[in-house]
Amino acid sequence: MSIGNSSESSEPEPEPESEDDRPSVGRSLQQARINAGLTVEEVSSATRVRIPIIHTIEQDDFTRCGGRVYARGHIRTLALAVGVDPAPLVSQYDAEHGGRPAPTPAAPLFDAERIRPEPRRPNWTAAMVAAIVAVVGFVGFTLFNGGGSQSGPVSADPVTSKPSAAAPGKAGSGKASSDPKAEASASAIAGVPANKVTVKLTADNGQTWMSAKDHNGKLMEEGVLKQGASKTFTDSKRIDLVLGNAGAVQLFVNGKEVKNLGDDGQVQRLTYTRGDPSAG
């Protein structure tokens, strides 16, 4: 019996499959940007990250970021701009580059909003000028009101003397005054011009990247709309919108709320005219 002629012993054993078939961090960011329909220039304008740095990050080259702390910050910023969760990408970067870096004094410098200005000496001259202006204004206001009170009784304001339109709501169920969304919708309907298209965006459930163009294709505004912030756009014919995180946006078109825009992280391209929406 010859063991060396055995066909089974000569066959190579199959190599084990790779445990991690995930795309790289840069490739994931690039693919998410393409899926969102955004160019590198649009992402750079929204995030203030320079175009060459975005290109190198998408090629998995983080040497131009200025260090691991800044690289993590760039990854998080770009992920939010293209509508993906930054946490898995940051964790993947840490795993590929020696773990999460230890906290250093340089880390807060990445967030420009946390930079504290250097203490300045008080400007006593400006304070004295402001105090003098306040005193003069108070004296003038007092003299003006005093002179007006001698001319006779002030007539009642015809607007405030009328019964309030919300008075029936107090006698009834009281829902009209207690529902802030109903009040916001009524206010939006009353304030829009009938001969134009008016769009109001509010980042209600989180921040989102957005852009708005008029009927000529001219860019009205683009950038990141932070949570709680609102933007209103008006045009004579049409407004084209791009929302990077549709699930976070509350949208009013011509004074009517448009619901069910999309899910969190979903990119939506929308167009509205003076006759929209047909049902708000």
Rank of each mutant, 00 (worst) to 15 (best):
S24K: 03
E41L: 06
I53F: 06
D20S: 07
R48H: 15
A36R: 05
R22F: 02
G67R: 04
A46P: 02
Y93P: 02
P88M: 10
E58A: 05
T77N: 07
V84D: 05
G83P: 04
Y70L: 12
E42M: 10
Q59M: 15
D94S: 09
S44I: 01
D60G: 06
E15D: 14
P52C: 12
G83C: 05
G67I: 07
G67T: 11
E96H: 11
T39A: 10
A71E: 05
D21G: 13
Q31G: 12
G66L: 08
T104R: 14
G66S: 11
R33I: 01
Y70Q: 11
G98N: 14
L80S: 14
P23H: 02
I51A: 12
Q31K: 08
P88N: 12
V25Q: 02
H74E: 12
E41T: 06
I34H: 12
A36F: 08
T56G: 04
A102I: 11
R22K: 04
V82E: 02
D85M: 04
L78E: 05
G99Y: 03
E19P: 06
V82P: 03
I57T: 00
G26F: 00
D60F: 01
A87T: 14
G83E: 03
V84P: 04
A46W: 04
L78T: 01
E13F: 15
G83D: 05
V84F: 06
R27N: 13
I57C: 05
H97I: 05
D85R: 05
R72Q: 11
I54R: 04
I51W: 09
L89W: 03
T39E: 13
G66T: 13
A46N: 00
V90K: 00
T56N: 14
V82Y: 00
A46R: 01
I57E: 01
G66H: 09
T47A: 10
F62S: 04
F62P: 01
A79Y: 03
P103S: 13
I75E: 02
R50G: 13
V84H: 06
G37V: 06
T104Q: 15
P52K: 11
R76I: 06
T47Q: 10
L38N: 01
G37K: 08
R22A: 11
I75G: 00
